[in-house]
Amino acid sequence: NNDALSPAIRRLLAEHNLDASAIKGTGVGGRLTREDVEKHLAKA
């Protein structure tokens, strides 16, 4: 659900052409954090 993404996370996802649903969020309520996105990028 993109409504739960902060603007910074949306921008980071867009810059790397990532789909938020492909990344498991570890923030409050399962929200994506910058660390989640960076860890996903490091794996790729």
Score class of each variant (00 low, 15 high):
Lys24Ser: 10
Ala14Cys: 07
Leu5Glu: 08
Asp19Ser: 12
Arg11Thr: 08
Thr26Cys: 03
Asp19Asn: 10
Asn17Phe: 09
Lys39Tyr: 08
Glu15Tyr: 07
Ser6Asp: 15
Ala14Leu: 07
Lys43Gly: 12
Asn1Glu: 14
Ala22Ile: 12
Asn1Ile: 13
Ser6Leu: 07
Asn17Ile: 04
Leu12Asn: 08
Val28Asp: 11
Ala8Tyr: 05
Ile9Pro: 00
Lys24Arg: 13
Asp36Met: 02
Ser6Ile: 05
Leu12Cys: 09
Ala8Met: 06
Gly27Arg: 02
Glu15Asp: 11
Ala22Tyr: 08
Ala8Gln: 12
Glu15Gly: 04
Thr26Glu: 03
Glu35Arg: 09
Leu18Ser: 03
Leu13Asn: 00
Arg10Ile: 15
Asp3Asn: 10
Asp19Gln: 11
Arg11Met: 07
Gly27Ser: 03
Ala8Leu: 06
His16Ile: 04
Lys24Phe: 06
Ala44Glu: 13
Arg10Ser: 12
Ala44His: 13
Leu13Asp: 02
Leu18Glu: 04
Ala14His: 09
Lys43Trp: 05
Ala22Arg: 11
Ala44Pro: 10
Leu12Val: 11
Ile9Val: 12
Thr33Trp: 00
Lys39Ser: 12
Leu32Arg: 03
Asn17Ala: 08
Gly30Val: 02
Ser21Asn: 12
Ser6Cys: 05
Gly29Asp: 14
Arg10Asp: 15
Asn2Arg: 08
Ala44Lys: 13
His16Phe: 05
Ile23Val: 09
Ala8Lys: 08
Leu12Ser: 11
Arg34Glu: 15
Val37Ile: 14
Leu32Ser: 01
Gly25Ala: 09
Gly25Arg: 07
Glu38Trp: 08
Ala20Leu: 09
Asp36Gly: 01
Ala20Lys: 07
Arg34Pro: 11
Leu12Pro: 02
Arg31Lys: 14
Ser6Pro: 13
Ala20Phe: 08
Ile23Trp: 00
Glu38Cys: 07
Asp19Trp: 02
Leu32Phe: 03
Asn1Ser: 13
Arg34Met: 15
Gly25Tyr: 00
Leu41Phe: 06
Glu35Asp: 11
Ser6Phe: 05
Val28Gly: 08
Val28Thr: 12
Ser21Gln: 08
Asn17Gln: 10
Ala22Leu: 14
Asn17Trp: 06
Leu32Gln: 03
Val37Pro: 00
Gly25Phe: 00
Thr26Trp: 01
Leu41His: 06
Leu5Asp: 08
Asn2Pro: 12
Ser6Asn: 09
Glu35Met: 11
Thr33Asn: 04
Ala4Met: 14
Ile9Trp: 06
Lys39Met: 11
Lys24Gln: 12
Ala8Arg: 09
Arg31Trp: 06
Lys39Ile: 11
Gly25Pro: 09
Leu41Ala: 06
Lys24Glu: 12
Ala42Lys: 13
Leu32Asp: 00
Arg10Met: 03
Leu5His: 07
Leu18Thr: 06
Leu18Lys: 01
Leu13Val: 04
Ala42Ser: 12
Gly27Val: 02
Gly25Asp: 02
His16Ala: 06
Ala14Ile: 08
Glu35Ile: 09
Leu5Asn: 06
Ala4Thr: 14
Glu38Gly: 06
Leu32Lys: 03
Asn1Leu: 09
Gly25Thr: 05
Ser21Tyr: 03
Lys39Val: 10
Ile23Ser: 01
Leu18Gln: 04
Leu18Arg: 01
Ala42Met: 09
Gly30Thr: 02
Ile9Ala: 05
Asp36His: 01
Val37Ser: 01
Asn17Leu: 08
Gly30Gln: 04
Asp36Pro: 00
Ala4Lys: 13
Arg34Phe: 15
Leu32His: 02
Thr33Glu: 05
Val37Arg: 00
Gly30Tyr: 00
Ala22Phe: 10
Thr33Asp: 02
Arg31Met: 14
Gly29Phe: 03
Ala8Asn: 10
Ala8Asp: 15
Ala14Phe: 06
Leu13Ser: 00
Lys43Met: 12
Ser21Pro: 04
Thr26His: 05
Ala42His: 10
Arg10Tyr: 01
Glu35Tyr: 07
Lys43Phe: 07
Thr26Ile: 04
Gly29Ile: 03
Asn2Val: 13
Ser6Glu: 13
Arg11Leu: 07
Pro7Arg: 11
Lys39Pro: 05
Ala20Met: 10
Asn1Met: 09
Asp19Ala: 08
Ala42Cys: 06
Arg34Val: 15
Asn1Phe: 02
Ile23Arg: 00
Thr33Val: 06
Glu15His: 06
Ala44Ile: 15
Arg34Tyr: 15
Pro7Phe: 01
Pro7Gln: 12
Ala44Ser: 13
Leu12Gly: 06
Val28Glu: 14
Glu15Ser: 07
Ala44Arg: 11
Ser6Met: 06
